[in-house]
Structures are given as C-alpha cells and as structure tokens.
Amino acid sequence: MNKWITITGLSALLLSSCSAADSVSSTKSHKQQLIHAEGTNVMERIAVPNGYERVPVEHGSYGDYFRNLPLKPHGSKVHLYNGELKSKEVYEAVLDVDVGERDLQQCADAVMRLRAEYLYGSGKQDQIHFNFTNGFKADYATWRKGNRIEVSGNKVSWAKRGAASDSYEVFRSYLNMVFAYAGTLSLSKEMKQVPLSEMQAGDVFLEGGSPGHAIVVLDMAKNPETGEKLFMLAQGYTPAQEIHILENMANGKGNPWYSTSFEGKLNSPEWTFTKEQLYRFTE
C-alpha cells in the first residue's frame, strides 16, 4: 500500500502496506453448510457448526455490535474505493459499510473505522481516539469542538477552524484524517497484546510495520463439551476496499470459522500471523 504522509521521517513507515504473499488456512474443516443467504447481518447470515454455540456477549457490547453489523446481499462482490472489483475472492460476505471515495480505508483503517463507529453510535464519543504514527494523539472530542489537525513537516498541532459539531459528516472527516496518518505501526503501539486463550470479539491480529496488516476478530463460538473455540475474521485491504468477512480456505467456501487451536501460525487468505500477534484496544 502506498499511503504516504508528509511527516518527515515517517512516510516510509506510515499506514503499513497490507499486501502480502499468498497463504492458505490450516484449521479443521467442517462439512456443514453454514451460510444463510437470506441473513442480513453477521449472526443471521453465518451459523455456527454443529456442536458449537456462539460465545455469550452483553447487549450493547462491542461483540454484540459486530454480530449485528449489516451485510450486503449474499453474493455481493468487494469493491475498491474507485468502484473496481477486488481481484481475489477470498471472502464469504461483504459488510454494508462504505469505503469512501479515496484510497484511505485500508487494513488498519478498517479496524479503526469499526471501533470508532461502535463508540460513536453507542454514545461513547469521548472514548474515540487514535495515535498517529509519530505518537500524536488525535482524539475526536477535540475535533468535534471545531478544532482541526495541522501537519507541517514533522510538527502536528491543533488549530481552531470552525464551530463545534457532533454531525456524522464531521465524524467522518475526523476518521479520514486518522486514516491518513495512522496505520498498523501506530496501532501496534497503542493496543495491548493479549493471549490467544483470552481472545474475544473485537481483538485484532496485527503486524505493525511496512508492510503490515490487521484483521479483526468479528465473532466467536465454543464447543461446550470440548472447550474448543472458533472465531471469524474480517478485514480491509489495499487499495482501500469494502470490509469483508474472510473465508477459511482450509474449510472451503461456506465455512469461515477458524479454530484457536491452529498449529504454528494463523494462515488467513492474504496474510500469516503468529499466536503472539493478537491485540486489544485498551478502552
């Protein structure tokens, strides 16, 4: 990916590339057909395998938000920001979340977009903040007061530019600014690592750097008898494109669930992660 910034000395690191070598999944395959074409959100569209139950989540929680994310009609293709189609069909479903008209909402940006949308929609706007690659804290609370971020060389600062507003348009303009100056490297510094055994919806498999990539854990299920846990993944990618639920290539089409008992590394369709690369937002 090539979203370069003007901050001196940081452009080669910012918004780390989400491109990577091809890889295949390596988790256990289930034969059951799990895709319900008529489902309009994550929970309705994708069932859990026989013997498993969705992990309980509190109403209004981040995990509950993910399960109720709207999906585009079954069979929809992933489009890039410019309207072109994603070259690889490595997905089971497409989230009904706009990608914008600029090459901004890539991999880490998709993670930040979902996090910010949840906080914005649940009345927790004061918790919305992300760091730029140089460490500058860009918080929405300051932005919505009419302040805007100015970048001059390696200097980043706030400047009063207008009236205060809580409008969604102002919120989206804030996110575009964040997308331009934050990425996988900054996320890896502001999020905390969590053990694989403690995984929960909203956690992120993350490799910070250039190249780097980020994939969010969208949902989880558990077998009450064996204790085995399954999880579902969603990603953005480069060029900026619609957020999509990844297929598990080891299972074949129709079963996007991955197992936490994967051996060695997690092989997603377009990136490979280690067990140690699981992160969580601290708020």
Rank of each mutant, 00 (worst) to 15 (best):
L187E: 03
A250M: 07
A110S: 11
A240E: 02
K229E: 10
K137L: 12
W143A: 10
E58P: 07
E198K: 08
T226C: 06
T40K: 15
E44S: 15
D219K: 05
K88G: 10
H213N: 04
D139I: 10
R54S: 00
A47C: 10
L85Q: 06
K189G: 06
F179E: 00
S61Q: 02
N131G: 12
T184K: 00
E283T: 13
A110L: 08
I245D: 05
G83Q: 04
R67A: 06
D109R: 10
N147E: 12
E38K: 08
P70K: 07
P211N: 01
A164Y: 06
V216F: 02
N251P: 01
Y65M: 14
M199H: 13
T142M: 05
R115E: 11
G121L: 01
F130E: 01
W4D: 05
G264V: 02
R161C: 11
S29K: 09
L185K: 04
S29I: 12
Q106A: 07
D109C: 11
P269M: 01
L230W: 03
K28D: 12
S197L: 06
E242R: 04
L187N: 00
R115M: 12
E44I: 09
L71C: 03
W143H: 08
L80H: 06
R115D: 09
S173C: 14
F132P: 00
S188D: 12
G252H: 04
W271R: 12
E58I: 07
Y91H: 03
S11I: 09
A108P: 00
Q200S: 13
A221N: 13
A47W: 13
V55M: 12
L69W: 04
Y120I: 10
H129E: 06
L278A: 05
V42P: 03
G146P: 00
S122L: 00
L104N: 00
I5N: 12
F281K: 04
I149F: 14
K265N: 01
M43W: 13
V204R: 00
V94C: 11
A221G: 08
P70R: 07
A12P: 00
W257P: 00
H74T: 15
N2S: 11
Q277S: 04
T260V: 13
G60P: 01
S76Y: 05
S19E: 09
E225K: 13
A37V: 15
D219N: 11
C107R: 02
N267L: 13
P56E: 14
P239H: 02
Y174V: 15
